[in-house]
Computed example of a mutant assay.
Amino acid sequence: MEDDGIGIKVAERIKGSLVRNNIEVIIGETDFQYCISLIENGDFVFILDAVCYNKSPGEITITNLEEYKCKKKYYTQHSCNVIDLIKLYYKSIRGFVIGIEVGSVSFKLGLSQQLEDKIDIISKEVLEDILLKVNSKDLEGK
């Protein structure tokens, strides 16, 4: 779905650096049940995903997991996402949602040219944001 895959592309690019910093990387794509099966109470998580906040393509928005609100309306019990399940079943999980603004979402494989041109910069910024959060007081008490 074009830029809807930006979180996966960034995670794949920064995975090596994160693993070297003792940060486990789970690339679950649309399989939220797989992701949930690997999360445990007490974990600190970063969720990378595409967002559409009407900002500039590639712009990063970081939201505390506790404050994150999904604006999507659900019509069936099969419409929940990994964040809904984390909040429902894992009360002691903390973390951040790192949203990357899309440029285009369509039935096309690969990123839009807008995001493809910025993928190195986006990946570097996301990696720096994660490492900053891990090494800051945001994890105090964990």
Rank of each mutant, 00 (worst) to 15 (best):
I27L: 06
Y75T: 06
L127W: 08
L109G: 12
S106V: 01
G95E: 09
N22P: 08
F32L: 10
I93C: 04
S79D: 15
D3I: 03
V25A: 07
G28S: 15
K15Y: 04
E12P: 04
V102S: 02
F44Y: 14
V10L: 00
V25Y: 05
K73I: 10
E59D: 14
L131R: 03
F46Y: 11
I47E: 03
Y74D: 05
L85M: 14
K137R: 11
R94C: 12
I47H: 03
S79C: 14
D120Y: 00
Q77I: 14
E66K: 13
S104P: 00
G58F: 05
K137C: 03
K124Y: 08
G99H: 02
Q33M: 09
I122V: 08
E67T: 01
I83R: 09
R20E: 15
G95P: 07
I8W: 02
K15P: 04
G141A: 14
L115Q: 00
V45G: 15
E140T: 03
G42Y: 04
R20D: 14
C35A: 14
N64S: 13
K71L: 09
S123E: 06
L18Q: 09
Y68T: 12
N41R: 11
Q77N: 15
E67C: 07
I27R: 09
R13H: 00
Q113S: 14
F96L: 02
I36G: 04
I26S: 09
K124R: 15
I6Y: 05
D49L: 07
R94K: 15
F107V: 05
G7Q: 02
